[in-house]
Computed example of a mutant assay.
Amino acid sequence: MFHPLRVSEVERLTDDAVALTFEVPPELRDRFLHTPGQHVALRRKAVDAAAPGGEIRRTYSICAPAGTEPVLRVGVRLVEGGQFSTYAFKELAAGDTVEVMEPTGRFVLEPRPGYFAAIVGGSGITPVLSIVSTLLAREPEARFCLVRSDRTVASTMFLDEVADLKDRYPDRFQLVTVISREEQQAGLSTGRLDRQRLAQLLPAMLPVADVDGWFLCGPLGLVAGADRALRGLGVDRSRIHQEIFHVDDAAAGTPALAPSAPPVTGSTLTATLAGRSGTWPVKDGEPLLETVLRSRADAPYACRGGVCGTCRAFLVSGEVTMDRNFALEPEETDAGYVLACQSHAATPDVELDFDR
């Protein structure tokens, strides 16, 4: 559900990134309490009349620590040609109102004792900043190692916030920074964090086998390389959590899930959403999310690209094929969850449940 929230602050983080802070009124307090690592979708009317539904939705992770009072702050990086990021970076100002969806997402860590680590690239720091700041503040028996990669020092988001964590928790917070496009006088050598480099770097920095949970966030290339490096070092898949912020054009055309059955024509979809069910005919070739949206404008979605996971639904019956899946973990797809924005009916009747 979306709510109109007033922007209380627009803070310039870098030459191409801002942090937006929203005021949460008392009556919405419980709805905007978040778990560390969750995100919100922001919505505005589209300038381009051809935009789906006449609106633009984008998902941004909450970077503020979780607490008993909601602090809603997100980081937005300017993307070339990005309609919402350009609007947020160049036009939004304190006092403006933006429609904000309630927090969601499963890239989370509830504070608990243990040793945790993250490998992030660029704006992938955003959810991890909420995770690590909440964890270290609430759990004195927790430790965290953050490995972050950025193009340049000037492009690094949340420099001050991360430095503050290092000063506040010197014995429990380890920070490793890699800059890919400029030479540094100290620290690690310049270059990308690919699979081979991480496989060499990680065992030299920390006891890989002792880490209770790994959090990988950023562009697809970095996340995929880090996952392969960790698996090669013997890390169990259950300890690796991923969230992808950007999928390049080459990867965008690659299906992430092999079809289990060919698409069919003349299908019927039954979907449950917010406690109400409906049944509708599926137009040939359309994603099931579009079928639902024709009658239920409140169907959850954000990116429509198989990345954010906002449209996750449980496949109650029937079969579907998914074009792409960069959001669901293997255990989720094994349990029967699909992305409605990427799913096509593969049987005459399909039933989805968005409430599970």
Rank of each mutant, 00 (worst) to 15 (best):
F314V: 06
G234H: 04
L293Y: 01
V211L: 14
A49K: 08
R143T: 11
E55W: 04
R73G: 14
R57V: 05
D227W: 11
A297H: 13
E69G: 13
K45D: 13
T97W: 09
L216S: 05
T21D: 10
H34W: 05
S123D: 12
A49M: 02
S123P: 15
E11T: 15
A209R: 10
G67F: 15
G187H: 03
A271S: 09
P111T: 01
T156C: 13
G67Q: 13
A118P: 11
R151F: 00
P330R: 00
A327T: 00
V316Q: 02
F107Q: 01
L198A: 15
L230H: 09
A250V: 14
E55G: 07
V132C: 13
S295V: 14
I125M: 14
E55D: 09
R143M: 10
T279E: 05
K283N: 08
T291Y: 00
F89D: 13
H39N: 07
A50S: 14
A94H: 03
G234E: 03
F144I: 08
L339H: 11
P103D: 12
Q242A: 12
L293Q: 12
G218R: 01
V98L: 15
H3L: 15
F2D: 08
Q184S: 14
D160S: 14
V235H: 04
D248S: 00
V76C: 10
V76A: 08
T35D: 13
L293G: 08
H241V: 05
T333Y: 00
L146Y: 02
G234Q: 01
T35Q: 14
L202S: 05
Q342R: 00
V178D: 05
E9N: 04
D355M: 05
G81A: 06
F245Q: 07
M205Q: 14
G75Q: 03
T254N: 04
P330L: 04
